[in-house]
Simulated assay, not measured.
Amino acid sequence: MSDPAIGAASAAVAHALSPIELFLQADSIVKTVIVLLLLASAWGWAVIAEKLIRLSLLHRRASALIASVQNDLPVTEVAPAFAAAPASDPLAQVYRAAVEEYQRSADLVASEGQRDALQERVHRVSVLASAAALDQLQQRLPALATIGAVGPFVGLFGTVWGIMNSFQGIAASNNTSLAVVAPGIAEALFATALGLVAAIPAVVFYNRISGDIGAYGKRVTAFIGVFEVELSRHLSRKGERHGLRVA
């Protein structure tokens, strides 16, 4: 039969080593490290949630937009489905930029060379619009890389500082009992654990989100190719109707 006094002491030790108690018992340096890691973890999860939700919506909308013009992609005007898409949608931004460039240069197709120049301008405008849209989509993503790279070292700094305090406590009390050093070591290891809690999800989801952005970028690139094919076909038909001169 267990001794009630031993059970009470064990419960008191367990309570004293709870995360909240570890934070309250830590010195100012370790507390600062813990707060920084908690803030970094919260910011990382906010970025992760925003990127995952947005990319899911973009992929779903891209499928719907491409399906809406699968057999007939207008090049002289923006298709209604794309016109109704949000202005921040990268696919819609690229499409609008390409159509606007064609509309500005549609009257400059008096020869074969001018037709090729128009196609080149549309291609460049589309690529630039794609790059700008994907850069915007990658905003705040480097924060995850930073958290993943720095988080463990910040936690390690808290660990080293906590262990130093524990050794100082041993020297001051002249007592090597585990009860003397346990709280300080627990605080130190708690900082390390928080560093890993912040860093591991950041690294995992940084790779996941980067892959999703890369896959979406390939869809945008494929769409640019489809638009250029439709544009070339449209210009060829227009040249046949108007007796296009060869440069």
Results as ranks from 00 to 15, higher is better:
Leu128His: 13
Leu22Arg: 01
Ala171Trp: 02
Pro90Lys: 11
Gly151Tyr: 08
Ser173Ala: 13
Ala182Gly: 08
Ser63Met: 06
Val127Met: 13
Arg96Ser: 02
Ala145Trp: 04
Asn175Thr: 03
Ala133His: 02
Gly7Tyr: 04
Glu101Cys: 15
Thr192Phe: 01
Gly225Asp: 14
Ser232Asp: 14
Glu21Asn: 15
Gly184Gln: 04
Leu144Pro: 06
Val181Arg: 00
Asp89Asn: 11
Tyr216Trp: 15
Ala92Gly: 07
Ala129Trp: 05
Val203Leu: 14
Gly211Pro: 11
Gly243Met: 13
Ala182Met: 08
Leu137His: 09
Met1Cys: 03
Ala40Asn: 04
Leu37Asn: 09
Pro90Phe: 09
Ser18Gln: 04
Leu39Lys: 00
Ala202Gly: 11
Arg104Phe: 03
Ala132Pro: 00
Val229Met: 14
Gln168Gly: 08
Ala87Trp: 03
Ala98Met: 15
Ala46Val: 10
His234Phe: 03
Lys51Thr: 05
Leu73Tyr: 04
Thr192Lys: 02
Val127Ala: 14
Ile48Asn: 00
Gly148Glu: 04
Leu91His: 11
Ala131Trp: 02
Leu36Ala: 14
Arg245His: 13
Ala26Leu: 07
Glu77Tyr: 06
Ser41Ile: 00
Ile185Ser: 01
Ala191Thr: 06
Val125Ala: 12
Ala64Met: 12
Arg104Met: 09
Gln136Asn: 10
Ala247Glu: 12
Ser210Asn: 15
Ile163Asp: 04
Gln139Thr: 08
Gly184Phe: 12
Met164Gln: 12
Ser126Met: 07
Asp116His: 05
Gly195Lys: 01
Val109Met: 13
Glu77Trp: 02
Pro142Ala: 09
Ala14Leu: 15
Gly113Phe: 10
Leu128Val: 15
Ser18Phe: 08
Ile147Cys: 09
Val160Ala: 10
Pro80Asn: 08
Ser130Tyr: 00
Arg241Glu: 02
Leu65Met: 05
Glu100Val: 06
Ala117Asn: 12
Ser210Gln: 14
Arg237Thr: 08
Leu22Cys: 11
Gln103Thr: 05
Ser10Met: 13
Gly243His: 14
His59Met: 10
His15Gly: 11
Arg96Val: 12
Phe223Cys: 06
Ser130Val: 07
Ala40Trp: 09
Pro74Asn: 03
Glu77Gly: 05
Ala171Ser: 14
Val154Glu: 00
Ser18Gly: 15
Pro90Asn: 08
Phe227Gln: 07
Leu231Gly: 01
His123Asn: 13
Ala49Gly: 07
Ala62Met: 07
Ser105Lys: 09
Asn71Trp: 00
Trp45Ser: 01
Ala67Ile: 03
Gly184Ala: 04
Phe153Gly: 07
Glu120Thr: 01
Ile34Gln: 10
His123Cys: 09
Gln114Ser: 11
Glu112Val: 03
Val127Thr: 12
Arg237Lys: 13
His15Asn: 13
Tyr206Pro: 05
Ala110Phe: 00
Tyr216His: 14
Gly113His: 10
